[in-house]
Amino acid sequence: MASPPAPRRDADADAGAAFVLESKGEWWHAGFHLTTAIVGPTILTLPYAFRGLGWGLGCLCLTAMGVVTFYSYSLMSQVLEQCEKEGRRHIRFRELAADVLGSGWMFYFVIFIQTAINTGIGIGAILLAGECLQIVYSNLSPNGSLKLYHFIAMVTVVMIVLSQLPTFHSLRHINLGSLFLSLGYTFLVVGACVNAGLSKNAPPRDYSLESSESARIFSAFTSISIIAAIFGNGILPEIQVNLNFCFIF
């Protein structure tokens, strides 16, 4: 495949953007960047989503949303490549939106939406990571003196350090480690569930939905909203721009 055009090097070019646009990644880097971007805290809510929809409808909705999401990724990837062929290589969603939809209010609208979502995700991820560390610490040292806010502060410092890395390519080793941890967690949970299900002391299985109709409706909509966002991520342009070849899903 043809290599993408080199970034502009004129005096008016953004030095930071020019550095980011130096593509160094390979296709397998995109694989674990995308996987770790999707596999997040939202995955932990899937059992609740299936609890509200049931096995049949839950699997159907999850499959349908996966097809829709990855088809959307494919379309966006093609748009990014087309813009690149025309000499406009984008590294952020807001730049892509301004190019496709116009550089007026849409640019600031996307910035507002992204800021709101990223703020919520950032706060939630820090709190969740702090709570997880506290659980591990409590099991290892039941009488320890560290409190939850200590672990939240630790996670915040780590996040600040990671945010200083210049490109997504700089995170490739960290994301690879995250991928292995995610796979390990998945296998452990599946194995534990199978073992619990086959155990003689297994709790009784109950796959029934809520008893009242209103509760079933609320649970169904909550479950659909969870599944709708389960495969989403906001870093597709950043992933694609770090590849040293044109990439189409």
Rank of each mutant, 00 (worst) to 15 (best):
Ile111Lys: 10
Ile121Thr: 11
Trp28Pro: 01
Ser199Arg: 05
Val68Leu: 14
Gly31His: 09
Gly197Ala: 02
Leu162Tyr: 06
Asn118Glu: 07
Ile113Leu: 09
Gln82Asn: 09
Leu128Tyr: 12
Cys61Thr: 13
Tyr48Arg: 15
Cys61Asp: 04
Tyr73Gly: 12
His29Leu: 00
Glu81Gln: 07
Thr42His: 08
Cys193Ile: 13
Ser182Cys: 04
Arg89Gly: 02
Gly54Arg: 05
Thr186Ser: 10
Ala30Ser: 02
Leu140Lys: 11
Lys147Trp: 00
Leu165His: 07
Leu140His: 10
Asn195His: 13
Thr119Ala: 12
Leu183Asn: 04
Ser77Gly: 15
Phe93Trp: 10
Thr167Met: 02
Leu148Arg: 13
Gly120Phe: 04
Ser138Arg: 14
Ile111Met: 07
Trp55Phe: 14
Pro203Cys: 02
Thr119Trp: 10
Glu81Lys: 12
Ser3Gln: 11
Val190Phe: 15
Phe93Pro: 00
Ala49Met: 12
Tyr149Ser: 08
Val68Ala: 10
Tyr185Asn: 12
Ser138Phe: 05
Arg94Pro: 03
Ile160Ser: 11
Gln78Asn: 11
Ala129Met: 12
Phe221Glu: 07
Gly25Cys: 08
Thr222Tyr: 15
Ile152Trp: 12
Lys200Ala: 04
Leu181Lys: 06
Glu84Ser: 14
Leu171Ser: 08
Gly31Ser: 09
Pro7Arg: 10
Arg216Ile: 02
Leu21Cys: 05
Gly191Ala: 01
Asp12Phe: 08
Ser214His: 10
Glu238Gln: 15
Leu198His: 03
Leu101Ser: 01
Tyr48Asp: 09
Ser219Glu: 13
Val67Ala: 02
Gly130Gln: 08
Arg205Leu: 14
Ser182Gly: 02
Ser214Met: 12
Gly58Ala: 04
Val110Pro: 08
Leu171Arg: 13
Ile217His: 01
Cys193Gln: 06
Met1Lys: 11
Ser145Arg: 00
Gln78Tyr: 06
Leu181Asn: 05
Asn233Glu: 04
Asn175Pro: 00
Glu22Gln: 15
Phe187Lys: 05
Gly197Leu: 02
Val20His: 09
Gly87Lys: 00
Phe112Glu: 03
Ser208Ala: 11
Cys59Met: 08
Ser212Ile: 02
Met159Ser: 13
Arg8His: 09
Leu34Glu: 05
Ser77Tyr: 01
Ala18Tyr: 05
Arg92Glu: 13
Ala116Lys: 00
Met154Arg: 01
Val136Cys: 03
Ile152Gln: 14
Pro203Arg: 06
Ala196Pro: 00
Cys61Val: 13
Leu57Arg: 02
Ala2Trp: 03
Leu146Ser: 12
Trp105Ile: 09
Arg172Ala: 12
Ile111Cys: 15
Gly40Tyr: 01
Tyr185Ile: 13
Phe93Thr: 04
Val68Gln: 06
Val190Tyr: 13
Asp10Ala: 04
His173Arg: 14
Ala98Asn: 00
Phe107Cys: 01
Leu148Gly: 06
Gly124Ala: 14
Gly25Ala: 15
Tyr108Thr: 07
Ser103Asn: 04
Pro7Phe: 08
Val67Met: 02
Tyr108Ile: 03
Thr69Lys: 04
Tyr71Gln: 05
Arg51Val: 08
Phe107Ile: 00
Ala17Lys: 14
Ala2Thr: 07
